[in-house]
Amino acid sequence: MMADVPDTEIVDRVAASTGLPPGVAARVVDDVLAFYRTPTEAYVRRRHTELQAEGRKNPEIFPLIAAELRGRLVAAPALSERQLRRIVYS
């Protein structure tokens, strides 16, 4: 096992396709997996903050976040705008 990646096959594949040393490939895979392991609530809060910092307003933000969640590699459950608001403001 390399880094926190239990499946070394993916590390071997990334190393072979990129030319990265196995240790670096393991860290890259671990970083990507950690990103996708982020709980939905944490993702929603982070994206809301990022989009607000870009000057966007909630009527634009919540539909955008909902669309992003539908497109995630490991799909989050379908959340209404009301559920998204609860995550952000509770």
Rank of each mutant, 00 (worst) to 15 (best):
A34T: 14
A26V: 10
P77H: 05
L79G: 00
P39E: 08
A75G: 15
R27Y: 11
F62E: 00
Y36F: 14
R56V: 06
L64D: 04
P63G: 08
V24Q: 14
A26P: 07
A25W: 01
R46L: 08
P22C: 01
Y43W: 10
K57S: 12
G55T: 09
T18C: 07
R27N: 14
A78S: 13
I10A: 09
E60P: 13
R56K: 15
I65V: 07
A67C: 02
G23I: 09
P39V: 03
R45C: 01
E68Y: 07
A78T: 12
R85K: 13
G19T: 07
R47Y: 08
E50H: 09
P6L: 03
G19R: 11
V14I: 15
V44H: 02
D4W: 06
S80H: 06
A26L: 10
E54K: 13
A3L: 10
V28D: 02
D12L: 11
R70M: 11
L64N: 03
A53L: 10
T18D: 08
N58A: 14
A42N: 09
D12A: 14
L79N: 00
Y36T: 07
R37H: 15
P22F: 03
A16T: 11
A76C: 08
T38Y: 02
D30N: 09
F62N: 02
Q83N: 02
R13K: 12
S17H: 06
A25Q: 01
P21S: 03
A15E: 01
P6T: 06
R56T: 04
Y36W: 14
I10Q: 06
P59W: 05
I10D: 04
T8A: 15
Y36E: 12
Y43L: 14
A66R: 15
E9I: 11
G23H: 09
V28P: 00
